[in-house]
Simulated assay, not measured.
Amino acid sequence: MIKLQDIKDARERISKWTHTTPVFSSQTFNMISNNSVFLKAENLQKSGSFKFRGAMNFLLSLNDEDLKHGVVTGSSGNHGQALACAGKIVGTKVTVVVPEDVSAAKLSAMEGYDAKIERCGRTSTERLKKAYEISQQTGAIFVPPFDHPWIMAGQGTIGLELVEQLGDFDAVLVPCGGCGLISGISVAVKETLKDVKVYGVEPEQSNSTYLSFKAGHLVELKNINTIADGLRTAMPGRLTFPIVQKYVDDILLVSEEEIKKAVVFLLERMKLLVEPSGAVTVAALLFGKFPLKSKKVIAILSGGNVDLFAISEWIKEAKQGG
């Protein structure tokens, strides 16, 4: 289990390369949600998502001999994109195993960072198994997308920034997939601030963290079908889940339609391009899933690597729906 000092060490290690991302607010959003909301814009992070923090921390924690062998991972896009970007910076070869239906935008970005691409299945279980096999065959270092202390500590640097930027606050909402992000952030904020609440947010159609949290043990999904491709995780990590159990207060669920409307809201009202996985926290606030009122709340916008054709269709749907 990672500690606050691990996150502080990670920040020292990666600060030269990462952006301190801005925080935005909106009076309209505050009125709709009945809270004072601040949006942490990790969609503006290098490589387009929070994943760059963990990927960079992992690579900078390896020795030169390890880096000579290259690295390999399985990813629906953002982790692979971040690792490819980080790999280019440190000078190591990167292979990414992606799902068959990988987002065109994310695939193009990974290839733009010179990553070698392998396709395998549609679930995180399938692509991570394939990535591990490649690691065994080639000697490349396997880089987990979420279930590793170096990854969690890197993502937790967001929590340190939140405290510095906003001081004390009542709650933070974090997208949940494999739980690398929420585990890192929850350790950072709960070990720093008193009485802060941490809520995870998941799509209803990819709710492995919700089911695991309620059951008290890991639950693996067999069928996943959500537009939030970064949250298509069969189950939380074996290392991340105990942290979720210790620090997270609850997991909230949002529908596919609510996610689409949140993406459109962010683009139209706040001029922020946010992918579905990053907009689930806003969906929870817009549609009454968040249980508290009149609180100072932070919503993490975890990424902005969105398919522009898809978002144009969602805008049309929103207009037709009134």
Rank of each mutant, 00 (worst) to 15 (best):
D195Y: 09
D195K: 08
G200T: 04
G200F: 01
E202L: 07
P203H: 00
S206G: 11
T209R: 03
Y210W: 14
Y210A: 02
S212N: 09
S212Q: 09
F213H: 06
F213G: 02
K214P: 04
K214H: 09
K214N: 06
A215Y: 01
A215L: 11
G216E: 07
L218T: 04
V219L: 05
E220L: 06
E220Y: 08
L221P: 04
L221C: 02
K222N: 09
K222C: 01
N223D: 07
N223F: 11
N223K: 13
N223A: 10
I224C: 01
I224G: 00
T226H: 05
T226C: 04
L231Y: 02
L231A: 10
R232W: 02
R232I: 03
T233R: 01
M235K: 14
G237W: 11
R238I: 13
R238H: 06
R238D: 04
L239P: 01
L239Q: 12
I243R: 06
Y247M: 06
Y247E: 00
V248R: 08
L252I: 11
L252Q: 03
L253T: 02
V254K: 15
V254C: 07
V254R: 14
V254I: 13
S255T: 15
E256G: 03
E256Q: 08
E257A: 15
E257K: 15
A262D: 01
A262S: 14
A262V: 09
A262I: 10
V263P: 03
V263I: 12
V264Y: 04
V264F: 03
F265G: 08
F265N: 02
E268K: 15
R269A: 09
M270N: 10
K271D: 01
L272I: 13
L272P: 11
P276V: 11
S277D: 03
S277Q: 03
G278T: 07
A279N: 12
V280I: 12
T281V: 04
V282Y: 05
A283C: 03
A284Y: 10
L285V: 01
L286N: 05
L286W: 03
F287N: 07
F287E: 00
F287Q: 04
G288M: 10
G288T: 07
K289H: 15
F290T: 07
F290E: 03
L292N: 06
K293L: 14
K296C: 13
K296T: 14
I300W: 00
L301D: 07
L301A: 12
L301H: 02
S302C: 13
S302H: 08
G304E: 03
G304C: 14
G304Y: 13
N305W: 14
V306S: 02
D307N: 15
L308R: 03
L308Q: 04
L308M: 12
F309P: 12
I311S: 07
S312V: 02
S312Q: 13
